[in-house]
Simulated scan of single mutants.
Amino acid sequence: MRNILLSFVLLFAAISSAFAQKLTVESFKLAGSDLTAQTQPRKDLNNRNCALIKVGIGLQGVQFEGGIMGNVENKTGEYWVYMPQGNRQLKVKHTNYAPVMVTFDDYGVEKLESNRTYELIVVTYPQYAITQNMTNQSLDSQHSTPQTHPTVSDNTISIPVKGRISIDMVRVEAGTFTMGATAEMNDPWKDEKPTHRVTLTNDYYIGKYEVTQALWKAVMGKKPSRFKGDNLPVEKVSWDDCQEFISKLNRITGKTFRLPTEAEWEYAARGGNKSRGYQYSGSNNPSDVAWSYDNSGIKTYAVGTKQPNELGIYDMSGNVKEWCQDWYDEYSSSSQVNPTGANSGSYRVLRGGSWFTVAAGGCRSSFRSSNTPDYRDDGIGLRLVLSE
């Protein structure tokens, strides 16, 4: 009996050790200026040039699965994986780590194209050991607050939620700006006027990314979205749904998250005190910073796949529209300090463009829309704010 028990303990320890860490994707994108797939080509079975994925991982002995053509080349610091056009997934494996399946569509690439070079960055990520997972599951069921602390770097903060799920926030310094249809905003709508001066007296943190489906599921236990993918923004959530989500998130983290006020949202979208006066959040070219009707192919994309704005915030001009805390109301020309919108109303504010918004019509930083608090749509999600 003792030998059997000892064998079980050793087996359990070995399993825990082997899967104490896993592989996870940090980024996957088209390397637009890299011509290696053309200058050092490899043919597929139809005599067409393959796509080339350059995988940066920092490990020896990595294996790959997924319709690979020929041998994987182990270069200094990276692997070169050639795959025929049309492929949609690549599995990355290592004997000491749990594997990861990379679904290209989660990162804005529907399928591989011939003659194109792509960059995939894979890192190792510590997981909880089996006994720790069991303990955390018990704590979660009792809504206990994890004993974890935010990680701070420069103007950002990362707040752990559950497992490897965390929330990256960007610090926005207090300041004064002109809200509404300023001179650089082309063809504004009536409700974007009159412009007015707004002063925000307190620093705050706003989500670097829109709330993802992985984060929503970690808190709510399910994904309500039409378009499925952990790194895609959550959508088909009402303003009321967002309040329930935030309430549960605050119990889990012990923090006080909320939706941004409309003024906080626009100030952050414009780049805060680092604003360069762009029409869109981070550029005068909407395709640089936004997924809209013009370039989305009628779907959402993984958060953070376009360029960030001046503060390092992604997707504020397009991917999904974002609920704000305020009741919708018309603007006044009077200067305001820390405005929070109307005291009551029938519609809550929505800001930003979405995958079905025509860029020229509704992706500019001053654009406003609204809907009833119980309304759900596959183009509506949220971004979080954390007050200091």
Rank of each mutant, 00 (worst) to 15 (best):
V337P: 07
T357I: 04
N343G: 15
E310T: 07
Y293F: 15
R348N: 01
G362F: 03
Y301I: 12
V303E: 10
G352Q: 00
S287V: 14
N319P: 05
T357H: 09
Y280E: 04
D288H: 11
Q307P: 03
Y314I: 07
Y328R: 09
Q307R: 15
N284D: 15
Y328D: 11
P286W: 05
S333R: 13
A290G: 07
S354W: 10
L350S: 01
S346P: 00
C324P: 06
D378L: 14
R351A: 03
G282E: 06
Y328E: 05
G277F: 05
G318R: 08
D326T: 03
D329W: 06
A342I: 02
S283D: 04
G379N: 14
Y331K: 00
S335Y: 14
N309Q: 00
S365T: 15
R276M: 14
R351K: 14
Y278G: 01
N338Y: 12
S281N: 03
S334H: 13
R348C: 06
S332T: 15
S275K: 08
A359K: 09
N284Q: 08
I313E: 02
P286G: 07
N338V: 02
S334F: 13
I313D: 01
R270I: 04
D374S: 14
S317R: 03
A342R: 08
A359D: 05
S317C: 03
Y331L: 11
S344R: 01
K274S: 10
V320M: 10
T372N: 04
T305V: 12
S317E: 03
G304L: 09
K321L: 12
V358L: 14
G341L: 03
E322L: 12
A342L: 06
G341N: 08
D378Q: 12
